[in-house]
C-alpha cells in the first residue's frame, strides 16, 4: 500500500486515488482535421516509462487533480504539486 501526497489533503493511502494519465498529453484540436493515427495515439498510446515519471492523479475524496512525481521502479514518491503549475 503506497502513500501518496495530495497537495490539498496531505499524505493518504493509494486506495483514495485514481490515475488520470501521464502528464503532458495534449488533446488534439478536434475542430480541425485530426488524422486517425494521431487520434489513436492520443486515446491509447502511453509512454509507460521505467524510472522517474510525472503523472496526473485525482484524489477522489477531495476531487483535486494534481501532478505527482514518482519512480515507477522503486515506487518512491518524489512529490506532488498543482496541475496548473505542473502543466506550465
Amino acid at each position: 500500500m503506497q502513500i501518496f501526497p495530495c497537495p490539498f489533503c496531505g499524505p493518504r493511502n493509494e486506495t483514495e486515488f485514481h490515475f488520470a494519465g501521464e502528464l503532458g498529453k495534449e488533446r488534439p484540436d478536434t475542430t480541425q482535421e485530426v488524422a486517425a493515427p494521431d487520434w489513436a495515439t492520443y486515446l491509447y498510446a502511453q509512454r509507460n516509462e521505467k524510472g522517474p515519471v510525472r503523472e496526473v492523479w485525482m484524489h477522489l475524496t477531495c476531487s483535486e487533480l494534481f501532478v505527482m512525481e514518482r519512480d515507477s521502479v522503486s515506487m518512491e514518491v518524489v512529490g506532488s504539486g498543482s496541475l496548473r503549475e505542473g502543466a506550465e
Partner: peptide, 15 residues
C-alpha cells in the same frame, strides 16, 4: 459523472 466533470474542469479548462 462527477469525477468525469472534475477531471475535465481541472485539466484543460480554467478551474
Amino acid at each position: 459523472v462527477r469525477t468525469h466533470l472534475e477531471a475535465w474542469r481541472q485539466d484543460g479548462n480554467d478551474p
